[in-house]
Computed example of a mutant assay.
Amino acid sequence: MSNSRILHIVVLSLSLMASGVFGMSLTDAGKVCLFSGISGVITLDGEPVANARVVRKADRDGEKQDETTTDEQGHFSLPPMFERTIAKYLPQEFAASQDITVFHGDQSYSIWRGVKRKPEENTESRGKPLVVACELHAEEKMIKVNNSPIISLCTWDVEPDPIEKVF
């Protein structure tokens, strides 16, 4: 094969890639939200939990993790967690596992476990900011929001999906 033919194939391939016909580079790809920004208050027996470590994990194509510490009033805040992807251009179901654990004293408390099934931000709260109140001694509850199951010690302003009856 001649050098000019090879050069022609390379230029054609690069042109197709740049136009999106052949594929899309990661830098041009969209972002999906693995875990929406979340803020709130953590309490233990109704009292604010100060200086607790709040560790958040999300996993879709590889685990991502961040953390923060509660202030003196038990408040915490974590920004949205995004992942760059070309998956939105491929037919596949979106699913990201979510987990938040609070470390206070010598105890750990799983306050949020779920599977996010929509790539948009704030689907855990139907489009509203995700602001929670988490009582560490509360009973775990499981709800579904936008067909995403969430097991949590937290409450927030959201209308759960209707309960499906199985006959």
Rank of each mutant, 00 (worst) to 15 (best):
A52Y: 06
C33E: 06
T70Q: 06
A96Q: 02
L14Q: 07
D61W: 10
T27P: 02
R56Q: 15
R126W: 02
K165L: 13
T155S: 14
V41Y: 10
I100T: 08
K144C: 11
F35D: 05
I86G: 11
G62H: 12
R113D: 14
A96E: 01
M1S: 09
C134S: 10
L44P: 00
M81C: 08
G20Q: 06
G74L: 10
E47Q: 15
A52N: 09
M142W: 03
G40M: 08
S36W: 07
L26C: 09
S36Y: 08
I150T: 04
A138M: 06
A29R: 04
V41T: 15
A50E: 15
K144H: 12
L90T: 14
A29E: 09
I100A: 03
E164G: 02
E135L: 07
D45Q: 15
I100H: 05
D66N: 13
L26Y: 10
D71H: 05
T68A: 06
M1H: 04
H75V: 03
I86C: 08
P79N: 07
E121T: 07
N51Y: 13
N3Q: 12
Y109G: 04
L7M: 11
T68G: 02
E120V: 04
E164Q: 13
G40W: 08
I143M: 07
P162C: 00
R84E: 08
S13Q: 09
A95G: 14
H8L: 13
F35A: 13
S2G: 13
D61C: 01
F82M: 14
T27H: 12
D66Y: 01
R5D: 14
D106S: 14
M1R: 02
L153T: 05
I143D: 02
T123E: 14
V166Y: 14
V166H: 12
I143H: 01
N51V: 00
L14T: 00
W156V: 02
E140W: 01
S2L: 01
G127D: 11
D157M: 00
N122A: 03
V131W: 03
V21E: 11
P79W: 04
F94V: 09
P149Q: 06
R84Q: 11
G114M: 04
I143R: 00
A87D: 13
R117A: 07
N51F: 11
H104A: 13
L7D: 15
H8E: 15
M17R: 07
K118P: 03
L130A: 02
F103D: 06
V158I: 10
Q92G: 13
L16H: 05
E139L: 07
H104R: 06
F82E: 13
V115K: 08
S108L: 02
N3K: 12
L78I: 15
A29K: 00
P149A: 06
E120H: 04
L44E: 15
